[in-house]
Amino acid sequence: MDSDRSKGDGNGGAGDGGVVVVGGGVVGLTTAIRLVERGLRVRLWSRDAVTETTSAVAGALWWPYRIEPAAEVGGWSLASLRVYEELAAEPAATGVRLVPGVHADTVLDGLGAWAKELGGLRQLAPDEVPGPYEVGLAARLPLIDMPVHLAWLRARFEELGGSFERRTVTGPGFAEAAAEARVVVDCTGLGARELASDSGLRPVRGQLVLVENPGVDSWFTAADAAADETTYFFPQPGRLVLGGTAQDGAEDLQPDPATAAAIVARCARIRPEIAGARILGHRVGLRPARAGGVRIEAEPLAGGGLLVHHYGHGGAGVTVAWGCADRAAELVCGA
């Protein structure tokens, strides 16, 4: 993952005040790493521990899902895929594994040009598709254990010379950060509704159920981008993650028992042994969707500083994280 890039040397590089990245999820961490790799002095401010961010709730399978703009997503996704393929060489440390599975209700010809860059995609015959689905696509993709991965990202950032700080930014605006750095990078996800006064942001609620794995070693998804119910399961170390929901505009962070029961039932239609699996816990997260898609753009700050916005990744922040981080870093370093 470009590990031979220069370590931050404390000399700034984006100006005497260096850079403050606000937001400690996967988008903020990857952006901070790319900046410190370029030799900048970088501080990352996060309200929460990295394992308590929205990113920690993610499944998290690499696949472009519920994200715009379509013209950019393919390139961002492929750039991120190459990084995950490298990180999969050390799964215990990085949390990244390459795992086989099936995307039901998916046709290869219906995907974007990015799919032609993937090796191993195979259209399945109808009798090969699990459950009540007639079409499906087999693939071997990065599956990421997010608590482990987020902890690795933070450690990597600090190893390169970055500074991680638990700080809460109130808004609107980023005056507090701008007072301490010439460049501020806004990776606040749904928080940018207030901090960046962006009314185009909205939550898409995702609920998951964690169960003991009854022997499932491959992933499965059936996710209609227009539906608020999805069906998927991801085998992670020590658990099987069952999903899910995509409830546009919902903000309730409490797990709903009826929704959880429906998730288990849907997954059990694909793998019946899931029905009897012992429940380990429930998770709810709010995906930061945005009208117009991901926002990566710069605007001037008073006094000659720069604010780079980098948010709105919807349900695919993990999938595009590294590609988007490269773009945000270009805006910072062009300042």
Rank of each mutant, 00 (worst) to 15 (best):
A302W: 01
G119K: 14
A329W: 04
P132M: 08
V57H: 11
T53M: 02
H310T: 13
H310E: 13
H313E: 12
R43T: 07
D4E: 14
E158K: 06
D252G: 10
A92H: 14
V294E: 15
A178Y: 00
Q236P: 06
A328H: 15
M1C: 14
G334D: 14
L137W: 06
A291L: 15
T53G: 02
W219I: 09
K116D: 12
G334N: 06
G312S: 04
R154E: 07
G119R: 06
G293M: 12
Q207A: 01
G8T: 04
R34Y: 10
T259Q: 03
R82S: 08
V204Y: 15
A89H: 11
R41W: 00
R239I: 07
T259C: 10
A139Y: 06
I279C: 14
D4K: 06
I67D: 11
T106W: 03
C333A: 10
W45R: 00
L195M: 10
A291P: 00
V27M: 15
T31F: 09
G315A: 13
F174P: 00
E68W: 14
I279S: 12
L35Y: 02
L150D: 01
L98A: 02
R166C: 01
E297L: 03
R295G: 03
G12L: 02
F220I: 04
E165V: 13
V294K: 13
R140V: 04
L118F: 09
G120A: 10
R166K: 08
A151G: 11
V211Q: 08
A321G: 09
G323F: 04
R239E: 11
Q236A: 10
S199M: 08
H103N: 10
E229S: 11
R278W: 11
E165F: 02
G323E: 09
R38M: 01
S218K: 09
V204I: 15
E52D: 09
I296C: 15
G17D: 06
R82F: 02
H313V: 13
I296A: 05
G39W: 04
P147E: 11
A192R: 00
G110T: 10
R122A: 12
E212C: 00
T54V: 15
Q123P: 01
G249L: 10
E128N: 00
